[in-house]
């Protein structure tokens, strides 16, 4: 079972206590954007085999949204962090680089 640390409560939560919220750090497009941009925002996903960033909600706890950095193949968790950021903080990026040297942060859609 996946265990994530809620950055707000500070406790380790089992996945049954959490709701998955899909890919994180999507750039939003709304009125005035092109069809291609809107399609990308709504439907296109990185779906990586490896390092992935996701939104999770501590549904049966504090109820707050947060971010998690995970490996989708090994289920290793690199860390969790606040929802109020546009990209992962430096310590999360460093934690990933320490374990996956070939990894690099890329511009998400």
């Amino acid at each position: 079972m996946l265990t994530l640390n809620c950055p707000y409560c500070g406790i380790d939560c089992d996945e049954t206590e959490l709701s998955p919220g899909g890919e994180a750090h999507l750039k939003r497009f709304g009125p005035g954007s092109t069809d291609e941009e809107f399609e990308g925002y709504l439907f296109m996903r990185e779906n990586p085999r490896g390092v992935h960033f996701e939104r999770w909600r501590h549904a049966y706890g504090c109820g707050k949204w947060f971010h998690a950095a995970r490996d989708t193949v090994t289920l290793e968790v690199f860390g969790t962090y606040s929802a109020q950021v546009f990209e992962p903080p430096k310590e999360i990026k460093d934690a990933i680089t320490a374990k996956r040297p070939e990894w690099s942060w890329r511009e998400f859609s």
Binding site: E15, S19, E54
Partner: peptide, 8 residues
């Protein structure tokens, strides 16, 4: 199905 991306 699991609710999150997963290749395991």
């Amino acid at each position: 199905a699991d609710g999150y991306n997963n290749y395991t």
